Amino acid sequence: MTKATDNLRWQKSVNDDDYLVSTSKDLVDRAFVQSAFASEETYWAKPLPDEQLTVLLDNSLTLGLYKVIPAAPSPKSAETPDSPRTPSPTIADDPSEQLQQIGMARLITDHMTTAYLTDVYILPDYRTHGLGKWLIKCCNETFDAMPAMRRTFLVTSPEVGKRFYGRELGMWDVGDEKEHLACMTRRFFRMD
């Protein structure tokens, strides 16, 4: 069954560079995800064995943030009509453009009523271009594409994250609803 969130796409240009956010599972760079999980900045995550990463990605809606890399012109002598091409993700079915994943936001969701936002990460070199706000705006539009959305959740730092997600997504601290709602958790880590 096709979901309304399966292949959402957004494009943006910043400083003469083109960027793409996409929910396509086919574009997600598994090595990038593992690298993000290995980063000290994603202290809540760690790289996973390949089989576990497959399950994680198959059961998530990942918004990948990609830089569009135009192809360098190739000499005509290297081009022949029968030359094989290595398949690669492209922005508009143009094999001359490559995508380099530079960020992500992962949603754990039923694609209908509930979503949990986690694993928001952008490579440090791309954090001052407004791409983080744009990625979160794309998350918000993804939530809006879910027909019966009741509630979105996330866990973040009380200092910076709480202000950022409050401003960008209109979220509030669950403690503000303490008469009607309790947020409960169980935390554990396995070291295999």
Rank of each mutant, 00 (worst) to 15 (best):
L56P: 00
V28Q: 10
A31L: 09
E41A: 10
A36H: 03
D50K: 01
F32K: 10
A36M: 11
E51Y: 03
W44F: 14
L48K: 07
E41P: 00
L27Y: 09
Y43V: 14
V55C: 05
D50S: 13
F32I: 01
D50L: 03
A38N: 08
L53K: 02
F37P: 01
D29M: 10
S39C: 07
S39F: 12
A45N: 12
V55W: 04
T54V: 09
L53W: 04
V28I: 15
D26T: 13
W44I: 07
S35H: 04
D29H: 09
A36V: 04
A45L: 11
L56H: 07
D29K: 03
L53Y: 01
S39G: 11
K46V: 05
L53A: 14
T42C: 03
V33M: 03
A45H: 06
L27A: 09
P49T: 11
S35K: 14
L27N: 12
W44D: 13
Q34K: 06
S39L: 13
V55H: 09
T42Y: 00
V28F: 04
Q52L: 14
E51F: 06
V55E: 12
A36L: 02
F37L: 07
E40N: 09
L48I: 01
S39V: 09
T54A: 14
L48F: 01
L56A: 13
K46D: 10
K25V: 08
K46F: 06
T54C: 03
V33F: 02
E40C: 04
A45V: 07
L27P: 00
K46W: 01
S35N: 10
F37T: 00
D26A: 14
W44N: 02
V55M: 10
A31W: 00
F37M: 15
P47K: 06
D26W: 00
F32H: 06
T54S: 14
F37S: 03
Q34N: 08
P47I: 08
V28M: 13
A31Y: 05
E41M: 07
A31R: 10
L53D: 12
W44H: 08
E41N: 02
V33S: 01
S39I: 13
A31I: 11
D26I: 00
A38M: 01
V28C: 08
T42F: 02
W44K: 10
A31C: 01
T54N: 15
L56V: 13
P47F: 02
S39E: 12
L48R: 11
K25C: 04
L27C: 08
P47S: 06
V28E: 09
E40R: 06
F37Y: 15
L56R: 06
V55T: 13
E51A: 15
K25F: 10
E41F: 06
L53I: 08
Q52V: 05
A38R: 05
D29W: 02
S39M: 12
L56N: 03
D50H: 06
K25P: 13
P49V: 15
D26H: 10
E41K: 05
V55N: 07
Q34L: 03
S35Y: 08
A45D: 12
E41T: 12
R30M: 07
T42V: 11
D29S: 09
S39D: 15
T42S: 11
T42D: 00
Q52W: 04
E51I: 07
